[in-house]
Simulated scan of single mutants.
Amino acid sequence: MPRTSMQITHDSAKTIVCLEGNWDFQTESKHLEALKNVLKNRPLSLVIDCACIQRIDFIFIVFLLDLLKSFDLNPEFIHTPNKMTRLLQTIPKDNPSASTQKELIVSRRSWNIFEKMGRYIEDFIQESLDFLNFCGMTLYAFTQALAHPLRIRIASLCYHINESGFKALPVSVLTALIVGAAVTLQGAMQLQGMGVPLMSVETTAKLSLREMGPFILALVIAGRSASSFTAQIGVMGLTEELDAMKTMNFSPFEFLVLPRVLALVIAMPLLVFLADAFALLGGMLAIKYQLGISFGAYIERFYDTVSWNHFWVGLIKAPFFGWAIAMVGCFRGFEVKGDTESVGRLTTISVVNALFWIIFINALFSVIFTKLNV
Rank of each mutant, 00 (worst) to 15 (best):
Q7L: 06
A13F: 02
A13V: 12
K14Y: 10
S29P: 05
K30R: 14
K40P: 02
P43T: 08
S45D: 03
L46S: 05
L46D: 04
I48V: 14
V62A: 10
F63E: 09
L64A: 12
L64E: 02
S70E: 13
P75T: 03
I78V: 14
K83L: 03
L88F: 06
Q89Y: 01
T90N: 00
D94Y: 00
N95E: 14
S110V: 11
N112I: 05
I121Q: 00
L129R: 09
A141H: 04
T143L: 04
T143G: 02
A145P: 11
I154T: 14
N162K: 12
N162L: 14
E163Y: 13
K167S: 13
P170C: 02
V173Y: 13
A176Y: 08
L177W: 13
T184D: 09
G187V: 10
Q190W: 06
L191M: 11
P197H: 09
L198T: 14
V201C: 10
L209Q: 03
E211H: 04
M212T: 09
P214K: 09
F215V: 10
L217N: 07
I221F: 13
I221E: 02
G223N: 04
R224K: 05
R224N: 07
T239C: 11
M245D: 02
M245W: 12
N249L: 11
F250Q: 13
E254Y: 04
F255K: 15
L256R: 11
V261N: 11
L262E: 12
A263D: 11
L264M: 15
V265A: 09
P269W: 12
L271M: 15
G283D: 12
Q290P: 02
F295W: 09
A297P: 04
T305A: 05
S307H: 05
H310T: 07
L315D: 03
K317C: 01
P319C: 01
I325L: 08
A326E: 04
C330H: 04
E335L: 12
L346K: 15
I359G: 00
I359V: 08
L364S: 14
F365I: 00
V367K: 07
F369G: 00
